[in-house]
Design a protein around this nucleic acid. Structure first.
Lengths: 346, 346
DNA sequence: AACAAAATTGTAATCGTTTTCACACTGTCT
DNA sequence: AGACAGTGTGAAAACGATTACAATTTTGTT
């Protein structure tokens, strides 16, 4: 029932080759035939089958996008940017949610290969996965976003996590804290690992001891963030400040703090990763590092397009800076009787 | 370079037909050949081209999903449910973001038709669009979610917006309010229209006058919500309560209220659509109607699957109830000198 | 006018599957 | 022995586009 190129050709009294040429804007078609073809296309309301086209030309105009958590506002912002940029370049996006599950991620990557997507953008769930290797073996253009792939070298656009975390924690230290809790994503992902490293860097630089009890890692989700924060608060000697490593963990931690009736910065100081829409409502205002979500997404697409054009260009790794917003939640803290609080000037 | 079915056939010493039969679990293949084929598939690491398959069988195992705003947490929750359910049924999801733009929506629908998706789930930007008609003309299984399509009859899964809005506004009235502002999405979408209708119903039922000045509609986004709420607050005689019609509008309205230094429920009462992750933090707690997001998504996929099996079954329209959480933001209000406040018992 | 080069057009092969059809080989039942 | 119903297998025809190649016409150059 769907009209095919042959129907159009018949109606316009030309060959399918000509129709194809007209439709793909190729040269060497007389104006007269072009008009006839266009007319036929119009009256028949013909839309070429992308499937057939993909089969023939061995690539599609679809960008496969795999994010690790579609409910994380950080990723939806990035998705938004990717979608916009892809759209501007006549590509469309095939989005999947790996849900931080390596099995699901592998399955979706396989699907995309089988589907002959033009390229893949992925926020990897783990540093390595054989499926990533297959990607480069089959020479499918691919870009990693947000997290690093250690398995194999591919283009990536990342954020300076170490630097941002170090800044945030340094700031807490300068505000007089020495026992700083960390609620982080699993170190299996580069973001988790790097944000932890930034935290440790800051402690070391100020000669502060590292207390393993104060460092919690887990799946970067609200529930886990809540649990980790509660554990920290139930410690015999709880931290006087906390650093949270992602939007969802921050929500969870806020919930835990909130339900124990504590308030920052006086009961506990806080500095978090990721700015969110509704944060204006958190009082006192939360010190956060805002990640360049839109640029991240835009650059990922641009890198992907570049690699499609030049498959053999050298691997490129873009690292974006994040911007810290210093606000009240981490303000100078009056030392209280609560614990040993090595006061430093800020 | 990618291995094709022919390579497998050659290596196993059989015909491509046999390979295909083995791979799709068809009967009439001897155990011996089956083993040989499976072995060859394994050593060659063969993955059949979905594109070729789609072309041949004239359908894919992809569900196309078009949402009107990927940054709206209501939709991401629904997307999550759709993804999960699709995955369980061996379908994968091709997600696009129409961004409340009819042009973009049309373009994506066309793309999906051209891509021969197995079915389409869509949250329509407007009540009618010729592209919807094409969907049924070409007999592509389709389900509308959240919003109604008036153009043409298709399966849909909706929420009882009129009822939920009526409940919310009735509650405000019972708490003593008679001048209730409304910050709603554009009435071009059924959600906007129905939530407005619920609001009006409640007013009429209590014999309260409708003041056009108190009713604001616009794009359901944060910016617009903020602007509409600010306009309401700047009215010579501002409302004593406000009803917001969607998650993003609620955030915008909250921001406007927050920045004018007002507090609910005393300065202004509030009741909103959509529960969000972080709302525990809003104090006093916000009265909201929680939509059944997960069920919405799950049912959409189930309806779609049913229609794939039985293309001629009667159109089904599922309407889900939403659940109101009564909290402090709308509590009984001490009448003040501010305006004519027809007191009713609550 | 003669010839080369460029512009138009069509024929048919191709992309990688699935599936129809034909054929061959079993048994089983008259 | 012949007919018949399964089984098991492969050859080849789809599916709907693109494009290499060839054939033809037009244009440009001497």
């Amino acid at each position: 029932m769907p009209t095919k190129i042959e129907d159009v050709a018949r109606r316009a009294g030309v060959s399918t080759a000509t129709v194809s040429r007209v439709l793909s804007g190729k040269p060497y078609v007389s104006d007269e035939l072009r008009q006839r073809v266009l007319g036929a296309v119009n009256t028949l309301n013909y839309r070429p089958s992308r499937v057939a086209r993909s089969l023939r030309v061995q690539r599609s105009s679809i960008i496969g996008l795999i994010v690790s958590d579609i409910q994380n506002p950080f990723f939806t912002a990035v998705v938004r940017a990717i979608e916009d940029t892809a759209y501007q370049n006549k590509f469309s996006v095939f989005l999947c949610n790996s849900d931080e599950d390596v099995g699901k991620e592998t399955m979706y990557l396989d699907l995309m290969l089988a589907e002959h997507v033009a390229g893949v953008i992925i926020s990897p769930t783990a540093g390595m996965n054989d499926a990533y290797r297959r990607l480069v073996e089959e020479r499918v253009p691919a870009v990693a976003i947000d997290r690093r792939i250690t398995n194999v070298a591919i283009d990536s656009v990342l954020v300076d996590n170490v630097g941002a975390a170090r800044q945030l924690v340094t700031h807490l230290i300068e505000q007089g804290h020495s026992r700083i809790g960390a609620v982080l994503g699993t170190p299996a992902s580069s973001t988790g690992e790097e944000r932890l490293r930034g935290y440790l860097d800051a402690l070391h630089a100020h000669g502060l001891p590292v207390e393993q009890d104060l460092i919690r890692t887990g799946m970067p989700r609200i529930l886990e963030g809540h649990a980790m924060m509660r554990e920290l608060l139930q410690l015999p000697k709880p931290p006087t400040a906390v650093f949270t490593g992602n939007a969802l963990l921050t929500i969870g931690a806020l919930r835990a703090i909130h339900s124990s009736g504590l308030r920052f910065p006086d009961d506990i100081a806080m500095a978090a990763f990721d700015e969110m829409d509704w944060m204006f409502f958190v009082k006192p205002a939360l010190t956060v590092v805002a990640q360049p979500t839109y640029d991240l997404g835009r650059l990922a697409v641009e890198l992907l397009l570049k690699r499609m054009d030049e498959p053999d260009r050298p691997i490129e790794e873009v690292v974006l800076a994040a911007h810290v917003h210093y606000r009240e939640s981490s303000k100078w803290r009056v030392p209280n009787a609560n614990g040993a609080n090595h006061q430093k000037e800020g």
